[in-house]
């Protein structure tokens, strides 16, 4: 299949622009989070609204209208940081569009699904992370934390675009299967979503530390939403991603049976996926175990995400196994 170089070039430009737009959005969010007078109020608001929402789908107007609590108190004065936050969201949406365009163009350029090597894989993982975060930020009042999600995304995309970049090309015979569509998209979707609980759990640890000892993170802590909101975000996203991840592993096993002659063979990628699965299973169990809720569960979730990252980088680039499709030479 010939590769359309023009489209591939457009894809690269779109990718670079998306990263730049994310960086800009990140700056806006950081300003909102750090300097905005609203930063602290946003956190306070979060605490009040937490009970109301109880993790449910927010009222449809959350994104555009001010939260209901504000109606009682002072009228929302759109101060500068508030406006910056809104602009940040707008920019993030723009970034997502560019990002999706990059992915789509890459697929069109190579006439296959655009996740056949590590560069493309990281591209789709990051896209899913940002989309997930936008959904989360609609349902929970955590917009001012967006920078903490965009930061790892931008780092990943930078690493992907510079060190792991692969020229648009067809994939090797072993990857030419419809399972590439199913297995890899499930793996990418779950990995992308798993970043969000990872970040939320990290922030949870900060907040929780501050709650126990107000001297710790004295300036940063109060600007974070209440610990239980962060915990709930982590749980809800993990609960969504975990079955998807399981599905991805299951599809991988079915594909492995057709491609390699066995459904499970402790290939490094399979092994680390198994480890990640067990860690996330432990996370879900820990939330039902006295003495393990909260801080320990958050730590387990972070460990789970670390294993996922390890699986992406170390296993693809350092170990030799059957999953050596990084396309990095």
């Amino acid at each position: 299949m010939p590769v359309n170089e023009t489209l591939s070039q457009y894809s690269d430009w779109s990718y670079t622009t998306a990263v730049a737009v994310y960086v800009l959005a990140m700056v806006f969010f950081l300003v909102e989070q750090s300097f905005g007078r609203k930063g602290r109020q946003a956190a306070a608001r979060t605490r009040e609204r937490a009970r109301e929402l109880v993790g449910a789908g927010a009222p449809a107007d959350t994104g555009t209208a001010p939260p209901p609590v504000e109606h009682t108190g002072q009228r929302p004065r759109r101060d500068r940081s508030e406006r910056l936050g809104r602009m940040g969201v707008a920019l993030t949406v723009l970034g997502v569009l560019l990002h999706a365009a990059a992915l789509l163009l890459r697929g069109l350029a190579t006439s296959r699904v655009p996740w056949g090597n590590m560069y493309e894989y990281i591209m789709i993982v990051c896209l899913i992370t940002v989309v997930t975060w936008l959904v989360v930020a609609r349902k929970f009042p955590v917009r001012h934390l967006s920078a903490f999600v965009l930061l790892p995304v931008v780092i990943l995309m930078f690493v992907g675009g510079t060190m792991l970049y692969a020229v648009a090309a067809p994939v090797q015979p072993a990857l030419q299967s419809y399972w590439l569509v199913i297995h890899v998209s499930a793996a990418a979707a779950s990995s992308g979503v798993f970043l969000v609980p990872g970040v939320a759990s990290l922030l949870y640890l900060v907040r929780e530390r501050h709650d126990r000892d107000p001297a710790a993170f004295a300036r940063f802590g109060p600007r974070l939403p209440a610990a239980d909101v962060l915990d709930r975000i982590a749980y809800r996203t993990t609960v969504f991603a975990f079955p998807v991840f399981t599905f991805g592993v299951l599809c991988g096993a079915v594909w492995a049976e057709a491609a390699w002659g066995r459904f499970w063979g402790w290939d490094p990628k399979e092994t680390v996926a198994f480890v990640a699965w067990v860690v996330y299973a432990a996370y879900l169990h820990s939330r039902a175990t006295a003495g393990w809720r909260g801080r320990r569960a958050a730590i387990i979730n972070i460990v789970g995400f670390s294993v996922t990252v390890f699986n992406l980088f170390f296993v693809n680039l350092v170990t030799t196994g059957l999953h050596s499709y990084a396309g990095v030479s």
Binding site: T271, V272, F274, V275, V278, V279, A281, A282, V315, T319
Partner: peptide, 16 residues
């Protein structure tokens, strides 16, 4: 829970 962790830990050398 502890056994789950041990299982995850014990599986790791197989990848390394």
């Amino acid at each position: 829970l502890i056994l789950l962790f041990l299982l995850a830990l014990a599986a790791m050398p197989g990848a390394l």
